[in-house]
Design a binder for these strands. Sequence first.
DNA 1: TTGCGTGCAAAGGTTTTGCATGGCA
DNA 2: TGCCATGCAAAACCTTTGCACGCAA
Lengths: 142, 142
Amino acid sequence: MGRTKSGSYNTKQSCEILNFLKDNAGSHFTSQEISDHFRSQGINIGQATIYRRLDRLTTDGLVNKYIIDEKSPACYEFIGTEHCSHGKCYHMKCEQCGKLIHLNCEEINAFFEHVSEEHGFVLDPKRTVFYGICNECNNSES
Amino acid sequence: MGRTKSGSYNTKQSCEILNFLKDNAGSHFTSQEISDHFRSQGINIGQATIYRRLDRLTTDGLVNKYIIDEKSPACYEFIGTEHCSHGKCYHMKCEQCGKLIHLNCEEINAFFEHVSEEHGFVLDPKRTVFYGICNECNNSES
DNA sequence: TTGCGTGCAAAGGTTTTGCATGGCA
DNA sequence: TGCCATGCAAAACCTTTGCACGCAA
């Protein structure tokens, strides 16, 4: 599977984890859920391995890590290589339904520029996640 | 100081914590930092008390709780009734030096409106943290 | 006097780390 | 064969909880 970064190996576990996330793009999983998934298939992958792998995938930009609050464990979700990797694609996460929404419009880029030029702060799209309540949840709530 | 909610008492510790945050409105502190502050003044307040008090203050809406990431402890900041309480005070976190910067400008509010009206997504300032590299780190890096 | 608030210590849960072993290239 | 990845268990960390005592009203 896939590209091997220089100085790293492709192991079975590594592929399994990435493929699982890729096959379920659009959904997010905790480290525990990933572990459980494999265990239910008779495959055992150490928790530490999962964390280490997710950490690297996040660094590589293939996966996004979401922290909803410090009580619930972090969620990981496949993001992919295309169209988000060029830099200016942000993500909005609905705190209620958990949906992940891609945001790539004029205004976000304008805002990006503003923060960079006026505040001297260069935003990191991979790390920055907008949290809030999405359209549907807003409507169904009232 | 001040108003006692029905079924609750005004204790010395309770007042100290609130006053400390109030006197430092605009800055945020971790539970540890608050504890250290009082200890350096010879005042001992149990960590649990601080957490319990911050929890209540957050519930009461006097204080905001910010979760930067699950590694660093939560930050608390006096909000009172003004200033940030209307919802549009965001935070930027430098991925390099870890500094937390307040962001409260025209553009962020305009962006807030845009996302709300055009994308139907209501941002949550308490959860949303902008990650990136700050001015100083950018300069000292090149 | 009543019952909320406090302090201490222990528990809880997620994530990280150390170290020996296993497996890719 | 050289190194990276893995697994297990222990550690680290922040936060919560139990319980007895203190203190506000």
